[in-house]
């Protein structure tokens, strides 16, 4: 869908994007992750053709990004806003027409969306008469009404109450099932982790890593497991060459261990050892979250920045 190649963007006194490249697959949900000020919005603005990169190119379906792609992209900026004094229906029409829809078409689509989101009665209202949450809903509809192939959402869930956030999330997933490619940009990595197929992590204008979420997590697996067993059994301790215990906790009649499996051994080997000893209750691999990976990656380079960049 989108091929980003060696994008560099320099502002007056700081480098916003330093040689960023990545690939966004058609029909995927892509996470653009990084702390505030990492360069996410700069990259989004380039994809939206709001600003031009100093060097590097963006390709959409193999073609150099140009004005004709504008109608295929829907963009929900982080800073939401609409004309306060303009009637909502008219405003939606205007925005949809700017994206290249004909008026008739725009009116039909908007009516359809308003019905779906239960906001039919808002057509003649003004934005300033709506609550913040309602405004967000209107803005979301404005983003997707022209049926874009690529939907870019900058901090999509901020400002929504949990109920509305869920409605919006479901709508986004439905759009994705119908073929739209979604880009989530957020600094709250845990909020989109389970939604994304692929991600790119950027920090201080540089790409830290990108790829499929599963592949990334596989790479960062540490062979750590959580083992829970009934405490009445003999306490388990680490075994050289097999596993070590990094934490131990006892709650009522159960004991929870965090174990690290030694190199060359598998969980099966550990189970073979444990089964005769204790009555197992639960076994689970501890997979690092994207956030953990991020902190890990950033700390490796510059330990001092890890904490302050963490939200």
């Amino acid at each position: 869908m989108l091929e980003i190649r060696n994008i560099v963007k320099q502002y007056a006194n700081h480098l916003a994007l330093d040689n960023i490249s990545t690939h966004i697959a058609k029909g995927s949900i892509f996470g653009l992750l990084g702390p505030n000020g990492a360069g996410k919005t700069s990259l989004i603005r380039i994809i939206n053709q709001i600003t031009a990169p100093d060097s590097g190119e963006v390709y959409m379906d193999g073609e150099r990004l140009g004005p004709k792609h504008i109608g295929r992209i829907g963009y929900l900026p982080e800073e939401r806003g609409l004309y306060k004094k303009m009637e909502i229906g008219e405003q939606m029409c205007y925005l949809a027409q700017l994206k290249g829809l004909r008026r008739q078409e725009a009116v039909e689509r908007i009516k359809h969306w308003f019905e779906k989101m239960e906001m039919q009665s808002w057509w003649n209202k003004k934005i300033e008469d709506l609550s913040k949450g309602m405004q967000q809903k209107v803005q979301f509809v404005a983003t997707v009404v022209h049926q874009p192939d690529l939907i870019i959402l900058d901090e999509p869930f901020s400002g929504f109450d949990p109920v509305n956030a869920n409605i919006i999330k479901e709508e986004i997933l439905a759009l994705n099932r119908n073929g739209a490619t979604i880009i989530f940009s957020t600094h709250r990595m845990e909020s989109v982790e389970e939604l994304c197929d692929s991600i790119i992590l950027i920090n201080k204008s540089k790409k830290i890593l990108d790829g499929k979420v599963k592949a990334i997590k596989d790479t960062y697996r540490t062979n750590t497991y959580r083992v829970e067993y009934f405490s009445r059994d003999k306490p388990v301790t680490g075994v050289d060459d097999l596993f070590s215990v990094s934490s131990r906790e006892t709650v009522e009649d159960r004991t929870v261990l965090t174990i690290n499996i030694a190199g060359g051994r598998t969980i099966n080997d550990v189970l073979t050892y444990l089964i005769p000893l204790v009555q197992l209750h639960e076994l689970k691999e501890i997979v690092p979250s994207i956030h953990d990976i991020f902190v890990d990656k950033v700390t490796q380079k510059k330990p001092s920045t890890a904490i302050e960049t963490n939200q």
Binding site: I50, Y75, P77, E79, L82, K84, L98, K99, Q139, A142
Partner: peptide, 16 residues
């Protein structure tokens, strides 16, 4: 100034 303060500017210049 109104468009800038409303923040609608970004939506519009992603279209024009």
């Amino acid at each position: 100034i109104e468009e800038k303060n409303n923040r609608i500017i970004e939506v519009i210049i992603s279209s024009v």
